[in-house]
Design a binder for these strands. Sequence first.
DNA 1: GTCTATATTTCGATAGAC
DNA 2: GTCTATCGAAATATAGAC
Lengths: 200, 200
Amino acid sequence: MNVAADNTGKREAILESANKVFLEVGFGAASMDVIANEAQVSKQTVYNHFGSKEELFAAMVRTSCDKMTLAFAEAAKDGNPEKTLRAIARHFMNVVFSEEKLAMHRILMAEVPRFPELGRVYYQSGPAIIRKFLADYFVEQNKRGTLKVNNPQFTAEQFISMVTCCRLRSELGVEPLPNDDEKQRYIDNAVTIIIKACRP
Amino acid sequence: MNVAADNTGKREAILESANKVFLEVGFGAASMDVIANEAQVSKQTVYNHFGSKEELFAAMVRTSCDKMTLAFAEAAKDGNPEKTLRAIARHFMNVVFSEEKLAMHRILMAEVPRFPELGRVYYQSGPAIIRKFLADYFVEQNKRGTLKVNNPQFTAEQFISMVTCCRLRSELGVEPLPNDDEKQRYIDNAVTIIIKACRP
DNA sequence: GTCTATATTTCGATAGAC
DNA sequence: GTCTATCGAAATATAGAC
């Protein structure tokens, strides 16, 4: 129950409620009445703060993206490349494999044709960050001679994709989110492949 | 324009129209009126053939999946592992990277909570087929000694994921579908990594 | 700014003639 | 089986009092 303690907190309450309802039932099936009730606020108040359902949805997504600030730097602090790749992969998986991220991903993809800029915002605030971080890491290791990565950009993206490949099945409802053991197996295999392929 | 030449073709016309409209605007935003108009059929005729919007959607997805029969066997007919991996990857990419598949993927993921079995049908009729095919191929090469793949199942899935990793950006509208050159670069890098990592 | 009550539209589904 | 016409529900958005 997102109770609005006072007037100043109602905007936040509405955003929280919108986050919950949109992620639960999707954009189309979500109704402004339900969102208002959940926030313990009248519907008109919702319309005062956000002019329309579309604007509310966009504001909700942006707010969620802002919270997705990831601290990868500490994960790659020291250690050999194998340990570092493991740490980065594990960090990313723990962020990505949650019911909330899954729902957000699903709904965003469905609504990209209607909200073209939101997909870009989401990508830039999430996948793009780790991709760049990892590519820079590969470049650095190339200089040090600890790895030999021919295409840092491609390899970074493909490494991330290897680690998260089972997300497709979760998204399609084929199986639930992976547990820690399953995550570890994907990490092990991916790291082993990259380390072998990029031995200097 | 999906014209129904005679009575016998109306069911197909409705399915074609449903395919077009659902993929264009999604399940929620698609209206039965528009689908009926597009098929040049009255709305009641749609309800006579398919009892509800949900049933029509499910029938549309199943029909589309049935057409997705892939002939990978010929792609892997002969040649060394490198050539074979390239052929399989290219074949799969050409199937996956089309506007229609992209739209289908997007909408299915959004509607999985509402239609749990459709996600499974879709996965089994598409990604699962190539995954198994590739895993079997790795097992076979292990026996022959031409490759050394420790985890055929994982590696098959991760190889496919490496090749199609840029689909995320297309799905999120960050950039358009890759052209042939771009596809080739993803294939080159992925095949190189696997060949190096799995040298016997 | 916030609430209650209402206007208006849209859409899924149906009734009844042919 | 197919069509035209319509019902009924739901939901977006607004009007007007406090």
